[in-house]
Amino acid sequence: MFAHCADPSTLEGFAWLACYLTNGKHMLFYGSFGTVLLLLAITAPVSLAFGFAGAVASRSHIPPVAWIGKLYTSIVRGVPDIVFFLFFVIALDQGIEWLRHQAICPDWTEPVRQGNDFVVCPEAKMPLSTAPQSIHEIYNFTLAVFTFAIVFGAFAANVLYGAMNAVPRPQLETAHAYGMNDRQTFWRILVPQMWVYALPGLGNLWMILIKATPLLFLLGVQDIVYWARELGGSKTAIYAYPHPDWRLYYFLFLLVFYLAFTRVSEVVLERITRKLSHGQATAAGEAMRREA
């Protein structure tokens, strides 16, 4: 970073620390905070979509669709997320490659499973082995987003299912009385009204999602926990910046990061709740009407 950092062994005290904290590895560490935030930003809407689909499926009048919806939510929620992460990503990766293998090289005669090996034709590899490392990282990141979305989609489905049932029935009956069909009632009455009931649960889920991110390193993404461990571990003289075991400090830093992030989320969620309560037929909405 700085010119005087060229030979760290000559530095001492603050200058050493300044150079240490700005070396290439630390830059990757700081960058990984961006990775985590990006993952949260993408995962939240995707899981909401999964959850919406799951909730709609569970409410379906067609039994098999309802079964699939219910099975999805109950199985995924019954399993600890960490166990799910440990094998699901490899399964997903192999599944994608197998599908590509079937589509791209139908002439391939060798079996895909050779003992323990999973072999597809080179053209079906995902991403291609010739692709630069950055593509591999983006692919891993996408798989991680997808895996998180499946797990948290199941929880979101549950919250939304409850919220849809919480919308007062007379609201829906009135809509029917005005001549709206099922589809119109669903989109114009049920969906806009359910959010206020869903918000506490979704807010809770967001907090949970934040706190599940330390497991990202299990999914092959180099996240903040990965770098905190890597940087904090004691370093012998083979490294440019030798130091004893500093993992404690790195993890304390992560703790502060998570607490601050939680606090900010709490404040924002409170604001959204106030906004959504406005004009709703609930106790909170009534209180706001009186205040005004």
Partner: peptide, 15 residues
């Protein structure tokens, strides 16, 4: 309550 609900269990175990 804030500290224990606001931080990941993973990090609590480590610390």
């Amino acid at each position: 309550i804030f500290v224990f609900r606001g931080s990941p269990l993973f990090i609590q175990f480590f610390l």
